[in-house]
Simulated assay, not measured.
Amino acid sequence: MTNNSIKPGQVWLDTEGKRIHSHGGSIIYIDGTFYWYGENKEKSKPGSNIWHWGVRAYASQDLYNWEDKGLIIPPNLEDESSPLHPSKFLDRPHIIYNRFTKKYVCWLKIMQPDASQKSTVLVADDFLGPYTIVKEGIKPLGMSAGDFDMVVNPSDGKAYYYFERVHSEMICADLTDDYTDVTGYYSTHFPQSHPPYVREAPAHFYRDGLHYLVTSGTTGYFPNPSEVACSSLYHGPFEVLGNPHVGDATNTSFGSQICSVFKHPLKKDLYIALADRWVTEHTPGNPTTYEEAAERFDRIFNPKKGMDPTVDHFNPVDTTKSDFVWLPFRFDGKMAYLDWHDEWRIEDYE
């Protein structure tokens, strides 16, 4: 079946009729082809001890129909200590191209057993791989680095790394010339005392002289209100503008979490928020509303309440059934809004 529109929140199949698995993902445009890549969750059933099955990529000419290009970063099944082993908590791959070294550079977030988070860096000569690990187990700036985004300044090729300093604040760090490490120069933003208030999942885009960061709160796989902020500089300061999701009475960003924002290169002003709907069915014992999830996370992480991680137990979420919510931004002055559409088409934009 050929798709001719985007239908947020509905099951999305590739050109072979298989469910797409490209979560926490991004789109990169290379030589006239769109490539969508992300976490492959096809085997991540609760109880399987499989968090991921590598990084999968898809190719498209129209953003509707996606051809499976396979695992560009396959899981390492032989070495249980490898950050690529399926049991490791590998999240949110981001790939940027270095025009000076002619390398594709991929950063991965790997959550550790003690809940700290470290980074693995890989490089490849071709976007589709093969990728080779060049650094692993690193803590950028000595920090536990969580959800992140990476952006390259198109004018001078300088790269920046936005990441959540786990359960604390957002960091913007300069990357080295080869994009495989940080220089040591950084700025801090949106400080908060603890989840669920800490901002995570940063998604950067640039429009009309402003750098935008869209972030979510910290409630695990359970969705919460997004927040958009902007600045004239990569390093801020950022002005918080508010929740972009229009009419979202559930306070769940339409039941999703934005992972990246893609500027359509062939359109004047089309910016697409790519989001994951991680939870598509309720698991008994888990929160049913944002307010319930936020209250649980506050009780677990609030130092004034004892920070007791055993206060509430969360049951595993079946991410093999996670879907995608892609929506176009609408701008009014500086503010970026997301309206709900049951269906929308790229062709409706200039």
Rank of each mutant, 00 (worst) to 15 (best):
Pro191Lys: 10
Arg199Lys: 15
Glu292Pro: 01
Tyr197Gln: 01
Tyr221Asn: 13
Ser226Asp: 07
Lys135Gly: 08
Pro8Phe: 07
Ile95Met: 05
Gly236Asp: 07
Pro284Tyr: 12
Ile133Cys: 01
Asn65Thr: 01
Asp79Glu: 13
Gly306Glu: 13
Gln192Cys: 07
Asn251Phe: 14
Ser253Glu: 02
Asp178His: 04
Glu200Gly: 11
Trp344Ser: 02
Tyr131Val: 00
Pro86His: 03
Thr320Tyr: 11
Asn49Trp: 07
Tyr206Trp: 12
Ala173Lys: 02
Gln10Ile: 00
Pro223Asn: 13
Tyr160Glu: 10
Arg207Asp: 12
Gly184His: 07
Lys268Phe: 00
Met150Phe: 02
Pro284Gln: 04
Ser116Lys: 14
Phe222His: 15
Trp278Ala: 10
Glu78Asn: 11
Thr252Ile: 01
Gly47Ser: 05
Phe297Arg: 06
Ile20Thr: 04
Val317Met: 09
Ser22Arg: 08
Val105Leu: 05
Asp276Trp: 08
Ser253Asp: 06
Val152Asn: 08
Thr183Cys: 12
His282Ser: 08
Thr319Met: 14
Ser60Arg: 04
Gly24Asp: 11
His204Val: 13
Ser82Asn: 14
Phe222Gln: 09
Val11Arg: 12
Gly217Lys: 13
Gly70His: 09
Trp326Leu: 15
Asn251Ala: 15
Lys88Cys: 06
Glu239Arg: 15
Trp51Ile: 09
Pro46Lys: 08
Phe205Ile: 08
Val105Tyr: 07
Glu292Val: 06
Gly236Cys: 10
Pro244Leu: 13
Leu63Gly: 03
Pro130Trp: 12
Ile95Leu: 01
Phe100Glu: 15
Val240Gly: 10
Pro74Trp: 12
His52Asp: 04
Val182Leu: 06
Arg165Tyr: 11
Ala203Thr: 04
Glu80Tyr: 01
Pro303Glu: 13
Thr33Val: 15
Gly157His: 06
Ala59Lys: 13
Arg207Ser: 11
Arg296Gln: 06
Tyr37Met: 03
Thr215Leu: 09
Asn251Arg: 15
Glu78Ala: 13
Ile95Tyr: 03
Thr252Ser: 15
